[in-house]
């Protein structure tokens, strides 16, 4: 369905995307995961033909987008980071314009607009001016625009950015329902979102491909290092000493505290030390207020992944 071969983009001296290659099969949902500035948007812009790549090739259903842009673009639906809407138009006028632009045959336009509105829950706002819609609705108009001509390949750049949790969930549901009919590539910097929606995750960092794997495998690879947050009522130094003495604990770093409450970040190596930590605190006669795993930041996940398969290096936090 989609083949990306050695795609590279250079902005002046800055290498934004560096020789990325991957392919996506028909009907698959794939997530692009990466921190800010990783090159997700740049890669998507090259796939959609918006940006000419410095080097490399993109083929959609075997059609090279540089050589046959019109043919290839017919097969793509694209939701950019900012929904590409004209704020002065009504939702309906806008979607009609997009339908003509995407060369939907004249007699089918009405039905397609209807269908896209229904799928994106836009029926109530069809006659409203887009500029007066809330951000969430505008995002849905952007999504409707992308699926309007029922393209084989959907490219969605951060489709849930800026939505409230309920709307993000609805959008994820919608994207999942699109699978099968469409091949979907979406970008996100939330691992859990990628895990919810996608069968495969492509991780990029600093313009390079770091890993391609299923979300389950990634979660397992990332879980190698246990980082725990411990909060206890007691003298900070004594608690720290007791925690450090627990077998399997690699490091104890103090965090915000005060008011007789001490907080630590505990790095454990391999073994599950949660019970031992709890016992250490209680045996010391202090009160255990909280004990939970720390969510790794995306940067740390990348460090872990790039350091894999050796799970030794535990990234510490300042």
């Amino acid at each position: 369905m989609l083949e990306v071969v050695h795609l590279t983009k250079q902005y002046g001296p800055k290498l934004a995307v560096n020789g990325i290659s991957f392919s996506v099969k028909k009907g698959e949902i794939v997530a692009f995961l990466g921190p800010n500035g990783a090159g997700k948007t740049t890669t998507m812009r090259m796939i959609t033909g918006y940006l000419p790549p410095t080097a490399g090739e993109v083929r959609i259903e075997g059609i090279p987008i540089r050589q046959k842009p019109i043919e290839a673009k017919r097969r793509i639906g694209y939701l950019p980071e900012l929904p590409p809407v004209y704020p002065e138009m009504t939702v309906e006028d806008y979607l009609h314009f997009v339908a003509r632009l995407k060369q939907v045959p004249g007699r089918e336009i009405k039905a397609r607009v209807e269908r896209a509105c229904a799928r994106c829950a836009l029926a109530d706002v069809r006659r409203r001016i887009i500029g007066r819609l809330s951000k969430g609705y505008r995002q849905r108009v952007g999504l409707a625009q992308a699926i309007l001509h029922e393209p084989g390949l959907l490219i969605l750049d951060e489709p849930t950015a800026g939505l409230d949790p309920r709307q993000s969930n609805e959008t994820r549901e919608l994207i999942r329902s699109l699978a099968g009919e469409h091949t979907v590539i979406l970008s996100t910097h939330i691992l859990s979102e990628a895990a919810q929606v996608c069968e495969r995750v492509i991780i990029i960092n600093r313009g390079e491909l770091v890993a391609v794997d299923s979300p389950e495998n990634l979660a397992r690879r990332v879980k190698n290092t246990d980082t725990l947050l411990v909060e206890a009522r007691g003298p900070a130094e004594a608690v720290a000493r007791a925690l450090g003495a627990v077998p399997g604990v690699a490091a104890v770093a103090p965090r915000a505290g005060g008011d007789g409450v001490a907080q630590f970040q505990v790095e454990a190596k391999g073994a599950d030390v949660r019970e031992a930590l709890a016992r250490a605190v209680v045996n010391g006669g202090w009160g255990l207020l909280e004990l939970k795993p720390v969510e790794l930041s995306l940067e740390e996940i990348f460090l872990n992944l790039t350091a894999a398969p050796a799970p030794a290096a535990a990234p510490g936090r300042p």
Partner: peptide, 14 residues
């Protein structure tokens, strides 16, 4: 400015 150029440039239009 508004990003609608991305729509125009990725549509099957010369």
């Amino acid at each position: 400015r508004s990003g609608t150029i991305e729509l125009l440039k990725t549509s099957p239009v010369r």
